[in-house]
């Protein structure tokens, strides 16, 4: 019961923060709400006993991506004005359509029946991830590292000042 109460609190917090991130008029506030949503999701990962992902979520999403977004907002000044976070004229239709999408998906999840496993998470789950990355998933692992290098070089090339 305590777990359920924690889950409900954390998910309400996460959803409120996510709503703030997409509705805030000030873009800087939106970025701060986004940090809150990331933090709530990381607590959910702890509840799911995926500790490695929870820590990685805090380091990568809050430590890197949110910081990057805040820097991009500050570098593109003038977008921080009160009209910065405006929504386009399709916003009410999008909200309505997505509300129905949510209802549909929630209904589908409600009627779906899954084969639950009663097994507990192995105590060496993190070691298992490490082993999987150098055996079964070595190719995706290498591809991901190449992707990161390409993204790094590409981002520098795109964002550098062209003075010629």
């Amino acid at each position: 019961m305590a777990l359920q109460a924690i889950f409900l609190l954390v998910s309400a917090f996460t959803l409120l923060m996510a709503l703030g991130a997409v509705l805030a008029r000030n873009l800087f506030h939106a970025a701060l709400f986004l940090v809150g949503a990331f933090f709530g999701v990381s607590v959910l990962y702890f509840l799911l006993e995926a500790e490695f992902l929870a820590i990685a979520q805090i380091i990568i999403y809050i430590g890197a991506i949110a910081t990057l977004i805040v820097f991009a907002i500050m570098l593109s000044r003038g977008m921080m004005g009160p009209e910065a976070g405006q929504h386009n004229r399709y916003a009410p239709f999008a909200a309505l359509a997505l509300f129905f999408l949510f209802l549909l998906v929630a209904w589908l999840f409600n009627i779906a029946r899954f084969e639950y496993s009663e097994q507990a998470v192995a105590p060496d789950a993190i070691a298992q991830i490490g082993r999987a990355f150098v055996t079964t998933y070595v190719v995706p692992f290498e591809v991901a590292s190449i992707l990161l290098v390409v993204a790094l070089i590409g981002a520098i090339m795109l964002a550098r000042e062209r003075t010629s």
Binding site: S11, A18, Y90, A91
Partner: peptide, 21 residues
């Protein structure tokens, strides 16, 4: 259901916002 709600909120941000960030 939580992840469906989070996804719908994110998609609303993608569809309805005017600022690229």
């Amino acid at each position: 259901i939580l992840s469906a709600a989070l996804f719908a909120i994110g998609l609303f941000g993608v569809l309805a916002r005017r600022n690229a960030i």
